[in-house]
Design a protein around this nucleic acid. Structure first.
Length: 289
DNA sequence: TAACCATCCTGTTAGC
DNA sequence: TGCTAACAGGATGGTT
């Protein structure tokens, strides 16, 4: 499941290849991957072909490649199972939904295969607008409502803690709310909550400021460690742009560890159904209080 | 206005 | 052995 570390690995992998490249051709094999594009596939292709690409950017789980006009960008979301694979012009990948062929100044002719098994991911061309908090920074309209992520230099800790305290919900819902803090999905929410010894159903209003600060620190720690290990791969569902897996799955303490001993206290990790997904936690270390 | 939840989607796997 | 149902979850839009 691509969350912030996985998306950042893909963005960083794309950067040297696509920056300065020109779009030579575009093939749309599955229109459903253009769900977020405001128009038919012909419009998507017309607005992309012959355009130059600038350095890719990211906020939370969204990334985008600004186009040479400086007013539009190719927006990508990997959803559950999206992959962006950089290939030579002869390589095909199973379940490629969109193919963009590039002429790169440094890497020559390339093929960018957007592969997506479950089609929760998407591509779109969108207009760039100034961010709310920094006029010189541009962001696609479709991403403007997403909060900055906790690895962003401009992430405002005090504002986050203040908004969190005012929320009338439970802590895991808040961590997954991309308009409050972005980049966290089910895996890293469970991992950060385990590290901070907080139950997923802890009401946000009853969470003390020191514990909220500790949680934010643990969120940063788990995202940073996962990024350093190249992200989390369980199978071929997440791969970097070269088709390689990350190593963070070996470092998971709670997610997917149901029945296994808690690395801290030795009691079994439990999985409960929550928000149409699984929540993994240690009932001893993580109690509602 | 905020919170919540059904929906989209398909390859894999567990169960019968 | 072969079929079916359950499962995985990010973002969105409709409902409460």
């Amino acid at each position: 499941m691509p969350e912030l570390p996985e998306v950042e690995v893909v963005r960083a992998g794309l950067e040297p290849a696509v920056t300065g490249a020109t779009v030579a051709s575009v093939q749309v094999y599955d229109e459903r991957s253009l769900r977020r594009h405001p128009g038919p596939s012909e419009d998507f292709i017309d607005r992309l072909i012959d355009r130059g690409m600038l350095a890719p950017e990211r906020r939370g789980k969204f990334m985008w490649i600004p186009l040479d006009s400086g007013t539009e960008a190719l927006v990508l979301h990997l959803g559950m199972s999206g992959q962006v694979l950089l290939r030579d012009r002869d390589t095909d990948d199973l379940r490629t939904r969109i193919r963009i062929e590039l002429d790169s100044p440094h890497h020559g002719p390339l093929r960018l295969n957007f592969v997506d098994q479950r089609i929760f991911g998407s591509m779109a061309i969108d207009t760039l607008v100034p961010t709310r908090d920094a006029a010189l920074q541009l962001i696609p309209i479709a991403v403007a409502h997403i909060a900055r992520d906790p690895l962003d230099d401009r992430f405002d800790d005090a504002a986050f803690l203040s908004r969190l305290a005012k929320k009338n919900t439970t802590i895991k819902r808040a961590l997954l709310d991309q308009t409050l803090i972005s980049g966290i999905g089910n895996i890293y929410a469970d991992e950060a909550l385990w590290a901070a010894k907080i139950h997923y159903d802890q009401p946000t209003g009853a969470l003390s400021r020191p514990r909220a600060k500790l949680l934010l620190a643990e969120v940063r720690a788990v995202l940073t460690k996962a990024l350093a290990e190249g992200g989390t791969s369980f199978d071929a569902q997440y791969l970097n742009v070269n088709g390689q897996s990350g190593y963070f799955a070996h470092s998971l303490n709670a997610y997917g560890q149901q029945g296994e001993p808690c690395p801290r206290c030795g009691r079994p990790i439990v999985r409960e159904s929550f928000m149409n997904r699984g929540s993994h936690f240690c009932p001893w270390c993580q109690r509602v209080r």
